[in-house]
Amino acid sequence: MPLRFLSDDKDLSQAQWKLRTTREQWLIWLGWLFGVSLFLLCWKVISDNTMWVFVQDAPQQGADLISRMWPPDWAYANLLWKALWDTINIATLGTVLGIMMAFPCAFLAARNTTPHPILRSFALLIIVSSRSINSLIWAMLLVTIIGPGILAGILAIALRSIGFIGKLLYEAIEEIHPTPVEAITATGASRMQVMSYAVLPQVMPAFAGISIYRWDINIRESTVLGLVGAGGIGLQLNAAINSLAWDRVSIIFILIFATVVVSEYISAKVRKAFI
């Protein structure tokens, strides 16, 4: 009770007001004490398990690594264009495939558009299982099933994207204004017509933004898929690291960095165009 009367006659001119009661104040203080203690305890455990000898020469090691990375092996870039192209294709085709599967899923999962609660739980199950597995793990599974190569990469990206796009899109669908839906329903339109006239235009900007954002993420994720044999520039990265060719590693980093910057630029442009 933040409001406190000093006298019994509930006289407001004698009253005090504080944001929290004393009890709440104490609980908050204890909460902070507990949180800070836990943090310090964890710090201690991690510190005990760290071999500080290795950490102590970290600056020299870091400097050494950078000196071996520099100058980058510029000529090696010519062998990378194909792998880079594969990476971009994996990301783009994977995203497109993911969108195609996520779109109907989102409409089945959104409370206000789902035809039946059972279908809704089914769609939610798809979305959750897709989200709970990282694309690198999807790729590992797929490489075992369909063999190494770009196809495994594309499918890994697609499977991971379903959950991301599906979840964000169905949340956007649940947040639309209900009155246009009412208005279109009142004209005698069918369910599908209500979707296409009242729901779709309202979620279109969100849908475009989400998809392009996922494509942006997928470009970054597909650069590592090669580590498990699912195609793309990660394959070369893995080989370069294993053979300690650090000047090649650095040129790969530079290329990945440039690609991500470009994709960031494109996604910003597209998002602006769709509002």
């Binding site: 009155t179 246009p180 009142a186 235009p201």
Partner: peptide, 21 residues
């Protein structure tokens, strides 16, 4: 019901238009 709804036009307080169309 959908066929009969055509005979009843509805007008709303917040207009209920589709903004992006």
């Amino acid at each position: 019901l959908r066929r009969e709804r055509r005979r009843m036009g509805m007008i709303f307080q917040e207009y209920a238009l589709i903004d992006r169309l």
